[in-house]
Simulated scan of single mutants.
Amino acid sequence: MAYLHGVETVEVTNGARPVEVVRSSVIGIVGTAPDADPEKWPLNTPVLTIGGAESVSDLGATGTLADAFDALFAQGVGLTVITVRVEEGAAIADTLSNVVGDVSERTGVNALWSAQALFGVSPRILIAPGFTSQRPSNLANPVVGAMQGFADRRRAVIIADGPNTTKEAAYTYRQDWGSDRIYIVDPGVTVYEGGETVVRPASAYVAGLIARVDRDEGYHYSPSNHEIYGITGTARPIDHFLGDPDTEANYLNEQRIATIVRDQGLRLWGNETTSVEPLNKFLSVRRTHDVVADSIQAAHLWAVDKPFSLQLLVDIAETVNGFLRQMTALGRLLGGRVWLDPAKNTKETWVAGHLYVDYDAEAPAPMQRITFYFNRNTGYYDTLSAKAVAEIARLTA
């Protein structure tokens, strides 16, 4: 230390750090736009847009991206979107191939991997309207399959469009998937456009709805039972009556397929992903746990490569505990706590520079089913009789 004759102040930065919640509703979209400005929307390159319709004014009117952005903006929120434009092929098979893209060349869906490096954000809601509903050669949709690896590693969810034909076809489509990161919506929606009613994929409308629910209520809320804006109906009528299990809406939900019902507005109806693990079946629980894990992870960059010390361990624990307490107070979590497991944290692991931190937490499940028991009670006739006798006696007194 340098020689000093006098007084100095050294700022010590010990203590818990604030945890900033990661963005929960960044949307990643892959599609076509043949008339787009190629300089602003280069092929197979992630493009970041923030805000409203003015941000995509030079996207052109043709292809799938323009309709998708109309659907997103119809939900009434300013959006953060990572867009990948691909070339429209001569046939749907060619376009599907372009949307899937190449892993090594980072084209199509695989271009989304570059978003974090380019913009510092990664998409958490993935859509490719018009390209996730097909089953080429009666096989699983290749675009959804290509998105799965990204969704698993980047903690994102995929909003996939069902086949938009029959409930039987939707059932067959659903059997291709068993992931808690895939949320299927069937059928498509109708919109009024150019003086006529046309059918559009539902996925972009649902993605925009999720962003709206995140903003207005929080990512721990399910998007189900929320009204979808900007649509006039569904591509086929969906039978629904609250409390009746023998409806198409209930059949689809039982198969873990979300749908859209008409009940005091046109509402998204369905909470469940295609997960084979019952604990992970609810979309809102999956997304909340993702946000918690990513927020805690991102909040500890400051601790990486610091030397082991008691103060450092306490600071990490208190940082996590403080965040879990905050999320619990806000209703995002039911509770949570942190601890160090001595079986994992040995002198061998610490001398190797490896710290293990355990914490638990649980997001609230959506109240998907409410059962009321209506009990007959003829004893109320005794009450009525007593009141009647008293009232008649009063009138005749």
Rank of each mutant, 00 (worst) to 15 (best):
A235G: 01
K167H: 08
A36V: 02
R256P: 00
I316A: 13
L266P: 00
V198M: 06
G379F: 02
A388D: 07
T32V: 02
E227C: 00
G149T: 09
M367G: 10
V199H: 06
I231G: 10
F73L: 06
G379A: 04
P46N: 12
F150H: 05
L65T: 02
N164V: 01
E227P: 00
G130H: 10
A204F: 07
P38W: 12
G76D: 09
Q368F: 14
T62H: 14
F372L: 13
G15I: 04
I210S: 03
D358S: 13
T232P: 00
Q264Y: 06
R394F: 04
Q134V: 09
I125F: 13
M1E: 13
V304A: 12
E168Q: 10
I158S: 04
P142Y: 07
G145C: 02
V285P: 05
P278M: 05
W41C: 04
G60V: 05
I370L: 14
T288M: 05
L72Q: 03
A317E: 15
V26A: 07
A352Y: 02
T95K: 06
A343I: 06
L242H: 12
T273S: 03
T45W: 12
E227L: 04
I296S: 09
R262P: 00
A68I: 01
A61E: 13
P38G: 09
E11G: 00
Q75L: 09
D246W: 11
T95S: 08
K306D: 12
R174L: 04
Y219K: 11
A329P: 00
V143I: 03
T32S: 04
H220C: 09
D214W: 02
H300V: 12
R155L: 07
I50Y: 06
V199K: 09
I238V: 15
I50S: 07
R154M: 01
G233V: 01
A115C: 08
V291F: 12
L384N: 05
I92Y: 15
V304M: 12
N375D: 13
